[in-house]
């Protein structure tokens, strides 16, 4: 018992460190590819690390309506991602995979959105409040999508345990219609889950000036940015674990490398989609996700009937 706790803790720390260290690299790759698509040279691959270091070294300015809430929101956003990391397999079995069920993960990731709300409220400027209301609208339609994806897996696996849900349970061994539907839905809404164009609506720089983040600077901004980068990795890992599990069971170096290669491909797809799309308006996005939700619920019904 003691040993398993020990290994779980080590695993958590390892996962968190891995995500924290690799997230800026993924962001760097994303920026470099974006630059190539835009006929630019682009920043150095390690630029995201430099940015974070620079921001972390800056003066911590208290601003906005409620500075404590602002700071709390920044810490919480980072904390949520780090907590979620413990439930997500990163090429290995998730360190706390047996400790929580799918619902814990759903709530944890939802908490990430709440951080943005709190940040917007704490800043209290017109633009951050606008960003907050947009985030709220998106959350209402977006989060159920993700929940349904997990639950479809859970229905197929007949268990809410994470290690059962993750690992390809959505297809239930064969290619069930519901699993494929959920794959399509998740692909179509993945940009929004990781807050990239065309669904970076709550932060739309050219409309509402980064919205909730407009009052942030220095270390707090660094935390938010870092959390956002990590979010990309976490969601990508979740997506791979849920929908593209093949090969992860292979022996150590092969399976591990394969896992990260799949993540990389996913990040590249995200980049290309982000680089070739215009931002949607919030009402268009909500309508879009509404449609997706209908499909997702349909898939859930199919899943309960065993398709």
């Amino acid at each position: 018992m003691v040993m398993s706790w020990f290994w779980a803790t080590i695993g958590c720390i390892f996962n968190a460190a891995l995500v924290l260290v690799l997230a800026p690299l993924f962001e760097g790759i994303l920026r470099k590819v974006t630059a190539r698509v835009q006929s630019r040279k682009g920043p150095p691959l390690l630029q995201s690390y430099y940015d974070l270091f620079k921001l972390l070294g800056k003066e911590d300015i208290e601003s906005g309506e409620a500075p404590w809430a602002q700071r709390f929101a920044a810490w919480l956003s980072m904390g949520v991602v780090l907590a979620a990391v413990c439930f997500v397999p990163m090429g290995f079995r998730a360190p706390l995979g047996g400790a929580g069920d799918a619902l814990v993960l759903i709530y944890l990731l939802m908490l990430g959105g709440l951080c943005t709300l709190m940040a917007g409220l704490a800043a209290g400027s017109a633009y951050s409040l606008l960003g907050m209301s947009r985030e709220m609208m998106l959350m209402i339609t977006l989060e159920p999508l993700f929940a349904v994806a997990m639950i479809v897996g859970a229905v197929h696996a007949n268990s809410l345990r994470l290690d059962a849900v993750l690992g390809g349970a959505v297809y239930e061994g064969r290619f069930g219609v519901s699993g494929l539907l959920m794959l399509a839905v998740s692909m179509a809404s993945f940009q929004a889950l990781v807050q990239r164009v065309p669904f970076d609506i709550p932060e739309a720089e050219t409309e509402i000036m980064e919205g909730p983040l407009s009052e942030y600077s220095g270390p707090k901004l660094a935390l938010f940015k870092w959390a956002r980068m990590a979010k990309l990795v976490v969601y990508a890992a979740l997506f791979v674990a849920l929908f593209v599990p093949w090969g992860s069971g292979l022996p150590f170096p092969v399976g591990w490398v394969l896992f990260w290669c799949k993540m990389l491909v996913l990040v590249l797809v995200v980049t290309l989609v982000a680089a070739t799309h215009a931002r949607y308006r919030v009402d268009q996005a909500v309508r879009y996700f509404g449609g997706m939700l209908v499909i997702a619920v349909f898939a859930l019904i199919l899943a309960t009937y065993g398709y």
Binding site: R36, V37, S39, R40, K41, A275, T276, H277
Partner: peptide, 17 residues
Amino acid sequence: KIRETVLCLKAGRVTLP
């Protein structure tokens, strides 16, 4: 979208150092 991507990539890097 694919056409746009090809268009973009075909141009290569044009910024000057």
